[in-house]
Design a protein around this nucleic acid. Sequence first.
DNA 1: TAGATTGTTAATCGATTAACAATC
DNA 2: TAGATTGTTAATCGATTAACAATC
Lengths: 220, 220
Amino acid sequence: MSSDGAGHHRGPGSGLSRPTVSRLPGYLRALSALARAGTVRVSSTDLAGHTGVSSAVLRRDLSSLGQLGRRGVGYPVAALQQAISRALGLVEDQPVVLVGAGHLGSALAGYAGFGERGMRLCAVLDADPRLVGERRGSVVVRPLEELEGSVAESGARLAIMAVPAGVAQTVADRLVAAGIRGLLNFAPVDLVVPRGVTVRAVDLSTELQILAFHQAELRQ
Amino acid sequence: MSSDGAGHHRGPGSGLSRPTVSRLPGYLRALSALARAGTVRVSSTDLAGHTGVSSAVLRRDLSSLGQLGRRGVGYPVAALQQAISRALGLVEDQPVVLVGAGHLGSALAGYAGFGERGMRLCAVLDADPRLVGERRGSVVVRPLEELEGSVAESGARLAIMAVPAGVAQTVADRLVAAGIRGLLNFAPVDLVVPRGVTVRAVDLSTELQILAFHQAELRQ
DNA sequence: TAGATTGTTAATCGATTAACAATC
DNA sequence: TAGATTGTTAATCGATTAACAATC
């Protein structure tokens, strides 16, 4: 499940609806693939085909970012990438802190698409002293005690939590107190955070249960 | 991001809206916690408080499953768990196949909430011969060649993909051909599947980008 | 009876869709 | 000019909200 802790209304300056924001990363991914393949121009029909939305939805979403295309021609790939990145607040490298260096944390740290999309992993922390000092991605695991220091020195506003459910709320509290404003939570717990902090949750069993529903529905 | 490959309309027999289905697993998780704590009865206001939705949404969602509560009293916890599980198609253990035994696959296989919620990990497969034979969760890693056999002998309809992006589509094709009807994909690729197969996608950078947007919005 | 709480209604709000005029 | 494709409009559709009658 992806729950949205804050943001029950549109942001004042942005004018982007929640569904639009949730689709933009998908467009960005498809555009990266097109750019790698050397494509310089794309129509709404083409791009929609790569992302699983209708061309009407795509044009509506893009038009809310400004007049990015040319009628009769299509959209320039590079300019579109820039415009979407800017709309998502990815103009410069966003430092991100990761808490938890177990299997899940290791997988997340090693994720290649990280740097490609305006994000930079600046610290990995873990409570287990046996993991401290090991490499994860491009950084070395630090003890959990250095959480506050890591957030402060990097200026990170975003954090990923790959910790056991039992300690998730405590870790979240410390991250928020240290200045984190966006949390991506992989622990199967509903975190309580102050207003102004956004939580997104990824939970395996939630996803599987939604899948089970669709599958059961088709059997009928 | 959680994209829904199929199901662009309500299922005929179910009468559950998509937003309702996506919230049910959250209710189930909160109810499990309440049951563990010995609570036998809960009001819509209480349960809503544990799940981050309004009490009006909660009552509306639950009423679409039937008349489960009693006015002036509230909802019985145990009966509610059963009703939601049944609505999600979790009446009996769902066998699930996992492809990929790397860091991410290992984390997923070790996930405790698996069996608690009507799911059973029945096979783990990997292309790397060095991983074959190792334990992951309650099962032993098998070579990728045994994918079709694993699906057939378990009767699994659901599969989890924790494989590199480059092979994701190929693996998906094989799983679908073997009889899988629901795919949970962790690779950053938009999978193409036939009608009747549901894909849900979990992508780290998508989630981070949505988070970045909210965080940037708050700064303005 | 009095208080509490559900299930449901009606009104509001927002997103999607289809179509097309504007424009390259 | 003719063909293609965007940006935008108007209509449809669906979800949320607030309020309250029904009921324990």
